[in-house]
């Protein structure tokens, strides 16, 4: 560490300005907006009325329920598949690098590109996946069916995210030294036993961290919903973020939308604090 009086501050200034302008000030401004309502360009202070309206609105609880269903299914299934993939890829089989590259391609696609492809695969009546998969699900038209449409979005999210979750689990697995397994093998443990006795207890903290990260991602997921279902059919896939976007940007309900944003920000901050605590206590220690 070196000591210079002004130089480090000058170096930080551009970054700090950008962060204040685009992240901090807007976060505070949305707090202010959430206490107001806008009619024909006029700002009227309403106190907590927006929040009262949100709590009283059936639509809010419905979209909260959609977010929860989406989040729970997405996180559980992603973790399950990613874990299996990571354990297999950790065996350092031939072609592992090639498999990794292929599995990571969806992570590099944008939400809209993913949306276009999935809507094409599940095009009502004609899409390839619509044809192939609908016999397994009682011949429903996926995108026209409340649970079906949610299923498609969850599937698309898993498809895009699995590589990311797998990479993090793999990183956790690789911190376990190989000697531990060799010692267990000498003591006569089979692979199944050494997974549950050695691998799982050691990667459980990492798993917790990834679950939190994915949960944060699930709460804020917006783009895939907009591009695959646009909240439909009806409002069956309208999650919190989509209803925030609708209220504020499409209906110019800035106050109400900002109040929703503040609520979502609170959920995010709480989860982020839990995340940071888990990182500190479990992974680093």
């Amino acid at each position: 560490m070196r000591q210079k009086t002004l130089f480090p501050y000058l170096l930080i200034l551009p970054s700090l300005l950008l962060i204040c302008l685009v992240s901090l000030y807007p976060a505070l401004y949305s707090l202010f907006l959430s206490l107001n309502t806008f009619r024909r360009g006029e700002r009227i202070f309403v106190g907590l009325r927006n929040f009262e309206q949100i709590i009283a609105s059936a639509n809010f609880w419905e979209s909260l329920r959609h977010t929860a269903v989406y989040g729970v299914l997405f996180v559980l299934l992603t973790m399950l598949f990613a874990f299996v993939l990571a354990v297999v890829l950790n065996r350092r089989l031939p072609y592992t690098a090639l498999f990794m590259t292929i599995i990571f391609v969806p992570w590099m696609l944008s939400e809209v590109v993913t949306g276009v492809i999935f809507r094409w695969l599940f095009l009502p009546g004609y899409g390839l996946m619509q044809d192939w998969l609908s016999p397994l699900f009682g011949d429903i038209t996926f995108l026209g069916h409340p649970q079906g449409a949610m299923g498609v979005v969850i599937g698309a999210t898993i498809w895009r995210t699995i590589a990311f979750a797998m990479l993090l689990i793999l990183a956790g697995l690789q911190t376990i030294p190989g000697e531990v397994y060799e010692a267990a093998a000498i003591d006569g443990a089979n692979e199944w036993q050494s997974f549950w006795q050695i691998t799982w207890p050691l990667v459980r903290p990492t798993t917790l961290v990834i679950v939190l990260l994915l949960t944060l991602q699930a709460i804020n997921a917006t783009g895939l919903f907009l591009s695959i279902t646009n909240g439909g059919p009806g409002r069956a896939t309208e999650v919190l973020s989509v209803s925030m976007y609708r209220e504020a940007i499409l209906f110019f309900n800035f106050g109400y939308g900002a109040a929703l944003a503040v609520l979502m920000l609170l959920i995010n901050i709480v989860l982020a604090l839990v995340y940071i605590r888990t990182m500190r206590s479990e992974v680093v220690a």
Partner: peptide
Amino acid sequence: RFAFRGRTLLLALFLGVLMLPGLTNLIPL
């Protein structure tokens, strides 16, 4: 490279912002 007053606080701010979702800033922006 540098030790300066407020370094810890500023670093915490930078990392804290990393956890903020861009989504909730869209309306104010």
